[in-house]
């Protein structure tokens, strides 16, 4: 496997490198847990890898509290996310997704930006961020920032809205408003408990008021469609209902609404039938216990 590597150390150098490589075939590398596997399968000697791992700017590397939520730099690793107490107490769907990603070794290097930009329908942290309805902060080579909701970020399997002169700089997760309690978790279905690519995943982030009434719901589904799906109508269905006293027919209806977003495929890991069946079952499980 041969390719060229350039390693910018700050944003300025990065933007310059993006500019000068516009006519060449280049890829960004950060944790390399996906890229190396891909390059091994399809080596390309003309490839230039813009290595982001040496960037030191906080905006790329820090988790910070901001006025209306949290900002996470795209180079923050799964391991760091899983250890963040702030994220754990506010958005445990994300920390749980980070903890369930691959293995300890992979979590040590895999970045949240990579998990988003690889645009796999099975992306764990990406799925959690869709449930959280996070925003992506994208920088272009001129230094211009554009912000788009993560729900608009994915355009298909392994494709995104990112232009060739753009890089995902950071992610902003909105504050939890008007909440009394947070029900936030990541359900990952695989055949074993580590080193697993999700067969089905369901991320939920639900806020309730003091009367247990649902005031906000974000539910995202992984591995059941070409992109991670925000199950909007299922989220809307929950608003105004009591989290702790949904009746069986309401739970069933909710589960039906979830399934409307599923158009899974059959592959070596699981059949479409299994994915659909399990998704319906685990959707119900949100309201049990």
């Amino acid at each position: 496997m041969k390719f060229n590597v350039v390693s910018p150390e700050n944003t300025k150098e990065l933007l310059e490198l993006i500019s000068v490589n516009q006519d060449r075939y280049f890829r960004f590398g950060a944790g390399y847990t996906d890229l190396l596997i891909e390059l091994k399968k399809q080596p390309d000697e003309d490839l230039t890898v813009i290595n982001l791992a040496q960037l030191t700017d906080d905006i790329f590397t820090a988790i910070s509290k901001i006025a209306d939520g949290f900002r996470i730099g795209s180079l923050v690793t799964a391991k760091r996310i899983s250890l963040s107490k702030d994220l754990q107490s506010n958005y445990s769907v994300l920390t749980e997704a980070a903890k369930k990603l691959a293995s300890g070794q992979v979590r040590q290097v895999a970045t949240i930006g990579g998990n988003i930009c690889t645009a796999s329908p099975a992306g764990d942290m990406a799925c959690a961020l869709v449930a959280l309805q996070a925003n992506c902060e994208i920088l272009n080579s001129n230094g211009t920032l554009r912000i788009i909701p993560i729900t608009d970020f994915f355009t298909g399997v392994r494709t995104t809205v990112l232009q060739k002169d753009e890089v995902l700089r950071s992610i902003v997760i909105p504050s939890n408003n008007r909440k009394n309690k947070i029900y936030s978790n990541f359900i990952k279905i695989g055949t074993r408990r580590a080193m697993e690519c999700s067969i089905v995943s369901l991320a939920y982030h639900i806020l309730t008021d003091e009367k247990s009434i649902i005031t906000h719901a974000g539910i995202a589904l992984g591995s059941v469609a070409p992109t991670i799906m925000l199950a909007k109508s299922a989220c809307d269905y929950l608003l105004g209902k009591s989290f702790s006293s949904l009746n069986p027919s309401e739970i069933k209806e909710f589960s039906q609404k979830i399934l409307e977003y599923a158009s899974p495929i059959s592959d070596i890991r699981a059949s479409a039938w299994y994915r659909t069946e399990v998704l319906g079952n685990v959707a119900k499980s949100i309201f049990e216990n």
Partner: peptide, 23 residues
Amino acid sequence: LYSEKGYILNPNFHDYKIPTSVD
């Protein structure tokens, strides 16, 4: 080890699963 018409479909640890330490 899955095979279809003589081809091996999962010749890697990603798709051929063995138990991991947490299992």
